[in-house]
Structure formats: C-alpha cells, structure tokens
Write a protein that binds this DNA or RNA. Sequence first.
DNA 1: TTGTACGCGTTATCAT
DNA 2: ATGATAACGCGTACAA
Lengths: 349, 349
Amino acid sequence: MARARAQRNATITDVAREAQVSIKTVSRVFNDEPNVRPATRDKVRAVAKDLDYHPNAAARSLAGRRTHLLGLAYGSVSPNYVYDIQKGAAARLEADRYRLVVMPFVEGEEAPARMRALARTSAVDGLVLVPPLGDDAATLAAIEQSGLPYVRIAPTRGESRAPDVSMDDRAAVDDVVAHLAALGHRRIAIVRGRPNHSSTAIRFAAFKESLERRNLAYRAELSVEGDYTFASGLEAGRQLLALAEPPSAIFASNDDMAAGVLSAAHEAGVAVPRRLSIVGFDDSTIAQVVWPRLTTIHQPTCDMAHAAVDALLALIQGRPSPAHIVLPHRLIDRGSTAAAADAAAEPAL
Amino acid sequence: MARARAQRNATITDVAREAQVSIKTVSRVFNDEPNVRPATRDKVRAVAKDLDYHPNAAARSLAGRRTHLLGLAYGSVSPNYVYDIQKGAAARLEADRYRLVVMPFVEGEEAPARMRALARTSAVDGLVLVPPLGDDAATLAAIEQSGLPYVRIAPTRGESRAPDVSMDDRAAVDDVVAHLAALGHRRIAIVRGRPNHSSTAIRFAAFKESLERRNLAYRAELSVEGDYTFASGLEAGRQLLALAEPPSAIFASNDDMAAGVLSAAHEAGVAVPRRLSIVGFDDSTIAQVVWPRLTTIHQPTCDMAHAAVDALLALIQGRPSPAHIVLPHRLIDRGSTAAAADAAAEPAL
DNA sequence: TTGTACGCGTTATCAT
DNA sequence: ATGATAACGCGTACAA
C-alpha cells in the first residue's frame, strides 16, 4: 500500500472525525481522564495510531497552560555533579511526559532577571535549583515573586516556601573527623570550599565543632581556602605540605580538591596514605579514578535530584509532598586513609 | 505606589491597545522585523516595558510553528564529555532565544520510536546527535524520515544529508604513535574502546596503520578491548602489565581508560613515565587530575558542540552552512610519557 | 458518558 | 509602514 504523503500532521480533529466522536472525547483519552467507555477509548486509540496522531506540544501548552518542561538551573559546579544531577532528574521524568531544559548560569550573570523572564514567558512549569544558585537571595526572591514552582537541592541559606532535598552535611563532616581521630590523627587540616558557596561555611563550622568535641585543637594554619576546584586543592596541598609541621591528615571539602591535595602529595613525594591521609566529600567519579582511591563521604546526588523532581512534580500537580527531604549519606573507606604514622610515637592523650 | 496585583500577564493585545497600534505591529517589534518606524518601535518598547510584557512561549510556538527548543540527544558517554558538549552548545544559544533540552538515552531503549514521537509532537526544532547515537542506522533513519533538522557530532558511519562536526581521528592517532615512536618506544600497546562505538574501529585501524608506516610491528597480544570506562582501562592495564614482555607504552583510546591504565601501573608498582608511558585521548578533565597528568590528544569538544549548534540553527533558519566541519586537534605533552627505558639498551633499528 | 463552543496568545496573510 | 482577521491545535466550562 502506498504511504500517503503526509501533507499535514493529523490533528485531534482528524482523529475525532475518523473515530466519530467529539474532540473532547479524544482529549479525554489522551489525557487519561475518566468517563470514557472502554470501547470508545479503544476505538480512538486505534484511529490515532492509524493516523499516526501525536498531540501537538505547543497547542497543549497554550491551551493547558503548562509546558511539560522543567528547568534545571545551575551555576559553577563540577561536571560530575551536573552529570549525576541530570541523571537522577531524568530518571524521574516519566518517559516523555516531562522534559528537562538545562540552564547553566555563568557567574555574575543577571540570574534574577532571567528567572523573571522565564516565568513571564511561561517557558517552564517549574525549576530545580542546584547549589549555589538556590542560596542566592536575589535569585530566590525573583522566583518567589514570579510564583513559579521550584525546589532546591542542598540549600543552606534562605527560608522559602519551596521544598528542598538535602543531606546532613554536619553529621557527614563529623563522620570524617571521627574516622580520622579513630585512626590516631591529631593534626588534621581542612581545605575549605569556595567562599560564596554556603556549604563551605557549614562544613567548616562542623569541622571545628567536631574537633572540639574530641578535644582536638583547631589550628588556623591548618585551614586553607580553596574554591572546590582541583587546582585550588593542589595549591592548598602544596601549602599545607610545606608547613614546618605538616598535618598527618587533610580533609578536603570536596573530591576535586581532595584529588588536588593528592597530586600535591605525589609531587612532594609524600606517601598516601602511609605518611598522609586524605579524605574527600561527594563521592564523585573522580574519587575512584585517582590513586589511591579516595576515602570520602558518599553524597546521594542522583537520588537527591530524583527526589527533587519528584517533589517539584508534586508541587506542580497539586499533590502533597514533604517540605524537607533529607537523604542518607555514608563514609566510604577507600585507600586514602590509614593510621597516623606518628600515632605510636606520640604519647597517648 | 501600590504594586498592582498582576491578575493576568499582559498580552500582545494589551500592549497594542496601550501603544495605540495593531498587534501585528507589536509582533513586528518583538521579532525584529523591518517596516516599523523608529518612533513606533520605541513607543511599543516603552509600553511593553511598562506593562512588563513578555511574549508567551507556547503561543509563539503554536502560531510560529517553532519551539525555540533544541534537543541534545546522547547515549552512554562520560560525564566530562557531556558537560563539555552542553557547555559548548549553551554558549552558542544566544541568551534565551533558544534553549537546550537534554535527552539521555539508555542503551537498548527504543530511540527511533522516541525520535519519531519527538518530531510528530513538534517538541523541538532540531536535534544535536552526540556519538554514538549519531551512528545508529535505525535512529538516523527515523529522524531523516521525520524531516526534523539535525546535526551530528563526530559521526563515523552512515551517510546523511545532515551537517556534521568532527575532528580528524586518524591524524590524531598518528600523532600519538609518532610521539611515542620518537621517544624510542617500540612495544606500543593499545586499549580499544567500546565495540559498538564506531570511533573504536577508526582509532584502532589508524593505530595499526601508523605502526606499519613506521615499521613497527603490530602485535595482537598488545591490543586489548575496553569500553571507554575507567574500570575497563584498569582491567586492560593489569592484563598488559602482567604480560611476560609488557609494553613500554600504552595508548588508551580515551582518557578515562588511560587513567585506569595509570591506576593499574600504580597497583603494580610500575613507575610512570619512567618504566611505562601512557597516552590518552580527548583531553577531558580527568587528564589533569591524575598523577602524573596525562599526555593526550586535545579534542575540541566544546568548540565542536558550539559549531554543531551553529550549523543546526543555520539549518533551521535556512541560512547556508558547511556540510562538514573539521576542527583542529593537538597532542598535549604532559607528564605521562617519556623516553623508552630500554631505548638505549636495545640495538637501534 | 459525551459534545459544543470558546479561549489560549501568538504569527501569518493579505490588504491598505 | 501599518492593520484586520484568520489560523495554529488543543483544553475546558458548561450543557446535554
């Protein structure tokens, strides 16, 4: 049989005519609404398939006032993090009913204005804010005011009516310190993250508290600022290892920096973990491709994104959902930590 | 002054009424069409700003028959690659006129059917195909038939009417072999990529030819299959280093695998680059975070994505653009390669 | 359970 | 240079 040249895509009207029902009935069928007799439903589906009918996305958006698009907004974060977030988010987007629009923001760009425009043009139905974007007051205010539904991943600042998904950073950092302390480390350094990421302050404060709790002194010279990049970790590592009295363990606030510290150790000929223990944070893929592999905190990034989209869809569709979701973390002990070399030499307590 | 509660977003009609022109004129202004007097244009813009008018995306799509959305379709590729691609693509999307929809395909999923649906629902204006999706015949056929504009990044198979952006893999591989040969290496191994990626065959064939060209023997036992993952590189490295006569240099078909080989060397206590040289491919971020850093081929991934979007927009907007774009690569000599240890010991030629 | 008629907010056609 | 009016294809009151 000759394939009819499709001059024009079949519309809902065509299906209605062919199936001898009204367009409303076709609409009901395609939106899984009740009150359609099974026979009618089947008939409509059959005709639709025959005509290769697919509802037009734009028309749906216009009439239905929703785009079936979700925006994923993020600023400067590592490739692995973005990848995991997208993977988790995509997993929750049931096949083709919703789609993900990526919106990378370069630092310093006018995020609030773009957010407003986004809402005013009805370009997306909702927004997932990845840190540190979810902590920016101006951006947040713009979105709040626009009325666009949104959820935040791992926010640390700013109260909002929106749901958020996170993990317990404080507890995780305490796990790190506990782990190192148990190995006999007493000179523990920290490489902090980028100053404007609020997670930086959280993790740093938790670090100090955890030390205190174990009667370990916090020393300012063992605290170095980084910016969550590998390069900054490398620099911080060099700095710490050049100290007259270098630390026996270094906690980097994320894996990229931990890998940088590791490279600094390699450079300096410091054996890891024999002479230096290193702990990261995130369990991003980099943690498993360096040598030795990094002991780190597993952050459930994929699951967090999944949960975030879940909450966002609930918000959009008017279903109830928890305001705060906290997902479990865990410390993964790989090869980059070991007992302190000087543990035996030093007098206990 | 009291902020008027925006009951309803301002529409083109509101602007037209307020500016005392027709809606068509407003439309002209917002679409940068000619034939509008400067004075009229200014007036319209002023009113629009006053009313905080933003054209509705859905209405535009419906009436204009284009969504201003570009799909980025990809299968199983590394996080760094995806990240670079998105970054490059986003850079070409002039602020907010076009947006990027990410479409990850899990292996074995019915890509052709989803592509057809995509086209029939007019969900996107065009598609960027990231390898190896652009090499799949069925997927390609589905898109071709649908008439959806698309471009392919680094395709290796299948003729199509669509433009493509790539680099010269063969030449790049030859650069690698030349580099190693110049360092005195004669036992050079290769870790191949995933079998169903056609780049794998290309790079492998080029490798063999390059050896021959230099009168270096190709040895089957020095060719190991991987799948472009770190884990497969690790395994391949173990295998090669366990050989009675291990290679003095290993070329891995991408950086992830090269990093895996490097870890295998660390495990085995083989000094890199003193006893073993390693070369990667791609220059993804992993190349700079392992120790030593990887000598590798810089693949201009960002630029390729940029060029791809450029070509796609040209296609969509009916502008001319080259059918094939080849971007330059270069070998980056970092720390993972050095003169062969046995170069002096072995008789020349 | 099904249908009618209108509205969504734009772009496109064709006239003036 | 500008305008009137018809699509665009679907969702949704409301009626039957």
